[in-house]
Design a binder for these strands. Structure first.
Lengths: 156, 156
DNA sequence: TTTTGTACATTAAGATGTTAATGAATTCAA
DNA sequence: TTGAATTCATTAACATCTTAATGTACAAAA
């Protein structure tokens, strides 16, 4: 009876979204942003998580981190990171080793391969960031980053 | 030689984070926010995705959506949603069926069980939202939601 | 020193993310 | 009306998420 009248064209029947929750809004916004980068990652055969690891290692002094810290910064849980690093080592982008002074820990660093990959992707990455910034407005972008930083610090 | 001097106390050696990218910032912020809700979800044996489905169905007129629309709003890819819905149906929170006028599509709606679950969790959920809003500030919260909404609309 | 506790990485198991491929139902054009 | 495109959900295969459990290495207390 009150069923939606079949509207064949594409999905022009997109309906009003329910009031989004904060966490859903964050997710949807991130999805929109990732849309700019996913094609580039795919071209290079990288997953999101693999790229986060490479990106973070590149920006840290000595391009080297302890697994524990890397996990926290990259928002990858330790069990997941184990596999990510195994695969990244297999493809030759990072090196793993246990520091002699503490055999519990695990250290990770970028290989030459890893550096070359990052440098090769860097240009296109920046290009996409500029496009996002243009669509959102430079001021908005700045404000958003500041608010995200604040939100990141809240705790239960 | 220049190795970090073992600092036993907790992890007070947290180092300066590299300039966060937008997508990483969104991820970290969302992680912080989810910290408020994860315990509650666990108490009720729900995953994040299952809760998103229930929440979204609850807020939509007639508490019913086509699978396709649900996937887009909940930021769950279609292949994943298939499994999520199978499990949610198995636990009795949603009902699935194919509309007679188009056998390709799949419809989903909340069961009575689903409504009861949502209502039972609603109070605690709001409580956590208030705590986040208090820590972030009401104005900041509002601004953030507006900016996330804008970001959600950018496209490559 | 032995005991106890703690900090790590890893494994395990089930759920989800991600892309490509399949297959069925519907639409569109010839 | 027939056959070629489209629109869906689903399956497949691999990567990751998530919590709990293991096991090892180090640290602190007895």
């Amino acid at each position: 009876m009150s069923r939606r009248r079949a509207v064949p064209k594409e999905h022009s029947h997109r309906m009003a979204k329910p009031t989004p929750s904060l966490t859903v809004a964050l997710l949807q916004a991130r999805e929109a942003a990732m849309g700019f980068f996913r094609p580039l990652l795919n071209e290079h055969g990288l997953t999101e998580q693999q790229w986060r690891v490479i990106r973070i290692l590149k920006e840290v002094p000595e391009h080297q981190l302890e697994s524990r810290d890397l996990a926290e910064i990259a928002c990858i849980l330790r069990p997941s990171l184990t596999g990510v690093l195994v695969r990244l080592e297999k493809t030759g982008y990072v090196k793993r080793w246990k520091p002699a002074n503490d055999q519990r820990r695990l250290c990770v660093s970028l290989t030459e391969e890893g550096h070359r990959l990052f440098d090769a992707m860097s240009g296109d990455m920046h290009k996409q960031y500029r496009r996002i910034k243009r669509q959102l407005g430079a001021d908005n972008y700045k404000t958003l980053m500041a608010l995200l930083d604040q939100l990141q610090r809240v705790e239960p």
